[in-house]
Design a protein around this nucleic acid. Structure first.
Ligand SMILES: NC(=O)c1ccc[n+]([C@@H]2O[C@H](COP(=O)([O-])OP(=O)(O)OC[C@H]3O[C@@H](n4cnc5c(N)ncnc54)[C@H](O)[C@@H]3O)[C@@H](O)[C@H]2O)c1
Ligand SMILES: NC(=O)c1ccc[n+]([C@@H]2O[C@H](COP(=O)([O-])OP(=O)(O)OC[C@H]3O[C@@H](n4cnc5c(N)ncnc54)[C@H](O)[C@@H]3O)[C@@H](O)[C@H]2O)c1
Lengths: 260, 260
DNA sequence: ACGATTTTGTTCCCGCGTTCACAAGCTCCT
DNA sequence: AGGAGCTTGTGAACGCGGGAACAAAATCGT
């Protein structure tokens, strides 16, 4: 309880969350420098990208890399990368670059995936099956400890190396396995109710695939993955590309650097 | 050479794209007022949310709604909602609110989902199956016209109401069905190559589920959905919640219900 | 030993996005 | 008819994030 952070989770797509850090530019006098703890949300969202890029580099045998290299691998501006990393500390060496292994560890530690977090998936239908079978989670700091569904026909079914259990075991599983993240893959109509039970059982992070808003108390984070919305955003641009051909926007011809 | 510098699509998670509209303060004199066409990316990302909320309201029989109502249903600030809608035009009535049906149509038209867009899914494994079986896409402006895979064992397999076809049919399908959006659900190693073929065949929008960057020429949009990254972002906050319990700020001013 | 070179960490600035606050406009009641 | 009460649409303030530019540090070469 406690930890009444100002209302946090609602959406997840954009960094449109809220307060980032209490830095408060102010500083009337040089007395208080304020604890610099608190990494901007935009940076937090990129750390996993850097982590993955570092893992790839390490697998390829690279020992050190410059911010330029890493930024290229992660698909971001090198200046942004350096600023992001500077929030964690000074883990690079000027004139040399970053030690891949060391930085990898530091980022993993900052994210908190040095030891696996327990994850439960609720709603083992089409999507739930895919998630349960996905090997990528376990290699990235997560341990799927339970698959829950309320359809009697599914109970006991083996998915991956795991058995589907009844929804009535939710509270037990969360407590016994120390589940910290719940993945919602139920129909939209069931999402809020399941979310409420997860929260009541002590889960404080939810990844929601159902196309609906779930309300949670302060202190609980919800991120939403909405594939229809992703497609519709693409549709908008597609639409504009086709229609606005002669209006304002560029030709489909070579306009490499659109920006700036 | 770093070059390449894919103009538009790289990430998809944040609104951290680039140019929003070519407004460019310009207009030395009061002659040209500049075409107001060009909706901010952040707004575009929310339009589908509003659209869904409106559909829900309509199904519930609601005829009109205020910006406050709609904002509540969509989980955003009403002020933001009004400003977002103002980019589309003046579709509300002061003192009354918005006509649900009318606004729904206007947003759908702006997004470009009044007639269905053709979608092809490439890589019909765990995730591809789930996507192919998902009914939610067809009801939201998309028509899945092809399922492609390069595994000979999968060819001909029926998924949903559709047969899996070979990757060699990619170009044919794109041309014949007028595919405008390609969904990448192949392993990461194959993503870039498939993306290249899609683009060469004329596809200008890609939704990428593979945990890797795909580079595309200017004019092609890529949005990335990365579930491991979503989990890791949750992990970060989880981590902080557990560790920073006594470290920082905030009084326990129990602030409930987030969105509403 | 010392300067040239490389690359980080940081500062500064600009522009987008969010939010407040209010004027404009519509409806309804008296 | 006229005013009271809402609700939209927008102008303005402001804070965050992105990117360029620069200063500090470390290595290399001579
Ligand atoms: N399949 C996709 O590709 C896809 C894409 C986008 C969004 N989604 C969303 O993800 C969710 C799951 O999609 P799906 O295709 O897997 O649906 P599905 O119908 O195949 O699976 C839903 C599962 O949830 C179970 N369930 C229902 N109520 C439950 C409850 N109260 N508690 C626990 N389990 C419950 C059902 O028994 C079923 O097994 C839906 O909200 C859907 O809109 C799916
Ligand atoms: N399953 C999940 O829940 C999940 C979660 C996050 C990310 N992903 C990512 O989504 C992608 C698909 O995941 P999955 O679990 O379905 O994997 P999968 O191995 O089950 O399916 C991949 C499919 O792609 C096909 N394929 C391989 N190379 C191909 C090519 N060149 N052209 C066309 N098809 C090809 C394979 O035959 C297979 O059917 C992967 O990149 C994975 O990392 C999956």
């Amino acid at each position: 309880m406690s930890s009444a952070r100002a209302a946090r989770g609602t959406q997840g797509v954009g960094p449109g969350e809220e307060r980032t850090r209490p830095v408060t530019s102010g500083a009337v006098d040089g007395a208080e420098t304020v604890a610099p703890r608190g990494i901007p949300d935009a940076t937090v969202a990129r750390l996993p990208v850097y982590l993955r890029a570092l893992v790839n580099l390490a697998e390829r045998g690279t020992r050190t890399c410059s911010s330029e290299d890493l930024a290229g691998a992660a698909g971001v501006n090198s200046s942004k990368l350096r600023k992001d990393l500077s929030y964690l500390g000074s883990y690079g060496t000027r004139g040399v670059g970053y030690d891949v292994e060391y930085l990898r560890y530091q980022i993993a530690r900052e994210i908190g995936v040095t030891q696996d977090l327990a994850v439960a998936i609720i709603g083992i239908g089409n999507l739930g099956h895919a998630l349960a079978n996905y090997a990528g989670f376990s290699s990235r700091g997560f341990r799927i400890v339970a698959l829950l569904d309320n359809d009697p026909d599914r109970l006991g079914e083996e998915v991956g190396a795991m058995r589907i259990r009844g929804l009535d075991e939710l509270e037990t599983v969360v407590a016994e396995e120390g589940v910290s993240i719940g993945v919602l893959a139920t129909p939209a109509a069931a999402a809020q109710a399941v979310s409420d039970r997860l929260v009541a059982a002590g889960v404080t992070s939810i990844l929601n695939f159902a196309p609906t808003l779930v309300s949670v108390p302060a202190g609980v984070d919800v991120r939403k993955v909405d594939l229809s919305i992703e497609l519709q955003i693409l549709a908008y641009h597609e639409h504009r590309k086709a229609a606005g051909d002669g209006s304002s926007d560029v030709h489909p011809s070579t306009r490499t650097t659109v920006g700036v």
